[in-house]
Simulated assay, not measured.
Amino acid sequence: MLRFIRLALFPVGLIAALPASAQDEGETPADDIVVTGVPLREGEETPVTLQDDGLSGAVSRQIASEVDRFARCADLPRPDLLRRIVDGKPESGEAQRALHEHILRNSGCYGTIFPPIPDTPYYGKCNPVMVNDIRGNNICRADYDRGEIYEQVLRKYAPDLVINRSITFNPEIRADFMAREERRNQDRVLSNDLFWFASCAVQIRPEYALAMMKEEAGSGREARLQELMIKDGLPCFAGGKVEEVTVDSRQFRAFVAEALYSWAVAVKNVDSLIPQDLG
Rank of each mutant, 00 (worst) to 15 (best):
T120I: 13
Y123W: 15
Y123F: 14
Y123K: 02
K125W: 07
C126K: 07
C126E: 11
C126H: 13
N127S: 11
N127Y: 14
P128Q: 09
M130I: 11
D133G: 10
I134H: 10
N138P: 00
N138T: 15
C140A: 05
C140K: 01
R141W: 00
R141C: 01
D143F: 11
D143I: 06
R146M: 04
G147M: 09
E148W: 07
I149T: 04
Y150T: 03
Y150V: 03
E151R: 15
Q152C: 03
V153I: 05
L154F: 04
K156A: 13
K156Y: 04
Y157M: 13
Y157K: 06
Y157R: 03
A158E: 14
P159M: 03
D160K: 14
L161V: 09
L161T: 05
V162G: 08
V162W: 05
N164P: 01
R165T: 13
T168S: 06
T168G: 01
T168M: 02
T168V: 02
F169T: 12
N170E: 14
P171D: 09
I173P: 04
R174E: 03
A175I: 04
D176C: 02
D176A: 15
D176K: 15
D176T: 05
F177E: 07
M178E: 15
R180G: 02
E182H: 12
R184I: 12
N185D: 07
D187A: 09
R188I: 09
S191I: 15
L194M: 11
F195Y: 15
W196Q: 04
S199G: 07
S199T: 02
C200Q: 08
A201E: 03
V202A: 08
P206Q: 08
L210W: 00
A211H: 11
M212E: 13
M212S: 11
M213Q: 14
M213K: 09
K214R: 15
E215F: 00
G218N: 07
E222H: 13
E222Y: 02
A223I: 09
Q226Y: 02
I230A: 00
L234Q: 04
P235G: 01
C236T: 06
G239N: 08
G240T: 04
G240W: 12
V247M: 10
V247P: 04
R250H: 13
Q251S: 06
Q251C: 01
